[in-house]
Write a protein that binds this DNA or RNA. Structure first.
Lengths: 258, 258
DNA sequence: CGATGATTTGAAGGAGTTCAAACTTAGTGG
DNA sequence: CCACTAAGTTTGAACTCCTTCAAATCATCG
């Protein structure tokens, strides 16, 4: 799985002069995630051009923000390591988590329209991102059509993802929401080469509840119920999916007796 | 306001050879919506290049679909006249309206990622759209950077719009949701040069309820309550906002006694 | 005018919340 | 290594906002 990373004890600050990192791992072409991330579908030569603008990596300690609402927009971020949550904040202090992001995911696209971020991105664990200066990315678009095409796919995918979340929040019962949540995580880990049936929840029960439009107590009760049904095994944040097929059926709306 | 349009009694079918319409109204440069729509920010010459690929207009009769889930993706559509709803459908027949679109809005962007539509777009009244062949639009991107930039803004804006809807569905009480709905419509009509306080609801109560994650009865009760509070006047689908400031306050979470 | 579909209103019920308390885990310092 | 603490989680019981079910009213259009 993902190995631990060393972090300075204090909040990491961005260097005024980003160091031109040339170590092998910082290059897209050698990154294990390039088939999921922005360089998807690029040839070797094109990937090297992309690498030239993605020179800066940034460590984000657990619970610290990669960006905040109203921050001016400069970069998109590709998650290299770790997990994030993105959330909106209401005027009266309410919070809605709009997504959980993992390695290979791109965050910050909501800021393009106004050149200010519309959400917070917070690391759920010590994490690491590749900084993608958007102005330079735009220059590359003119030169690498397939990069532009894939960028459009990623933005479009974010739209469908958000609309599916609307479907979940507006139309589904608690049980169905939680089943969806688990099935979604399962498939995303699978796509990354990890186990589809055994993984760790990187977020708290509270975060899960917030994302699903439920209270923490409801989430806890759902976990207990799913465990009792024999669909999952849970130990703290460690999840083992025992009956993925049934979970998928419940996610699709098969109502079950309690 | 928007004038009525003549429609054939039967569902409109797309012509195999799109007629090269050259009437003045079909041109972006003379369209009253170009400051809201895709050509925003383009110069005269650039707008004329865009016009060359947006040759096809299409009438969409009330209640008929502009596109359906799983349709292959060829075009984006700019709404020229009328109103649409977009919605997702669940496996078990459930439906979630993900947005209401009006003149100047762009629909179909969710289809870019898989080249198949992920939703339905249905006309709420007899409407008219400009067909934008995406392949040709991509070619233009290479030639008109400001067009690409604005397209990114529009996609990004769709993302923030959807995330705000998640906030609404996941975090707000019924009263707050409905106030948000009204304030949102108000500001969109205002941006289009119409009255911010007096407009017609183009969608049924059922559609409103579905969009807001509420039942039709709840919507009806909210309308009655808002009317009784003196915040709005309602006659069928005609709305007059009497106290926009209070509505905004309620939308932001100011809880009111009933 | 009469029929059909949409909307409103009322009353009862329920899914999930709220409040409260017990329990578990992880982190800290002795 | 263990006691102690604080934070996170689970469980129980009462409540509430919204839903569901039912019926009345209204709008539209042949």
């Amino acid at each position: 799985m993902m190995q631990a990373v060393q972090f300075a004890p204090n909040p990491v600050t961005r260097l005024p002069e980003p160091p031109r990192s040339t170590e092998r791992q910082s290059r897209c072409s050698t990154c294990s995630l390039h088939h999921l991330c922005l360089p998807t579908g690029l040839g070797e030569a094109e990937m090297q051009r992309l690498e030239k603008i993605v020179v800066n990596r940034r460590k984000v300690p657990r619970d610290s923000a990669l960006y905040c609402t109203n921050d001016t927009f400069n970069n998109l971020y590709a998650i290299r390591l770790g997990h994030f949550k993105t959330h909106q904040v209401t005027f009266d202090g309410g919070e809605q988590i709009t997504g959980f992001q993992m390695a290979g995911d791109l965050v910050g696209m909501d800021a393009i329209s106004t050149e200010r971020h519309h959400s917070y991105a917070v690391a759920l664990e010590d994490s690491e991102v590749c900084e993608i200066p958007f102005v330079k990315l735009e220059e590359l678009f003119a030169e690498i059509p397939s990069l532009l095409r894939h960028f459009h796919r990623m933005m479009s995918h974010e739209i469908t993802r958000d609309q599916n979340a609307m479907l979940l929040l507006g139309n589904m019962r608690a049980e169905q929401r939680f089943a969806n949540f688990l099935v979604n995580l399962s498939s995303r880990y699978k796509a990354r080469g990890y186990s589809a049936t055994s993984f760790q929840l990187r977020m708290s029960r509270e975060d899960i509840g917030n994302f699903l439009g439920l209270t923490i107590e409801s989430v806890s009760r759902l976990i207990s119920r799913f465990k009792k049904q024999g669909w999952i095994k849970v130990s703290n944040r460690e999840i083992e999916v025992v009956d993925l097929e049934t979970l998928k059926a419940v996610a699709m709306g098969a109502s079950q007796a309690h």
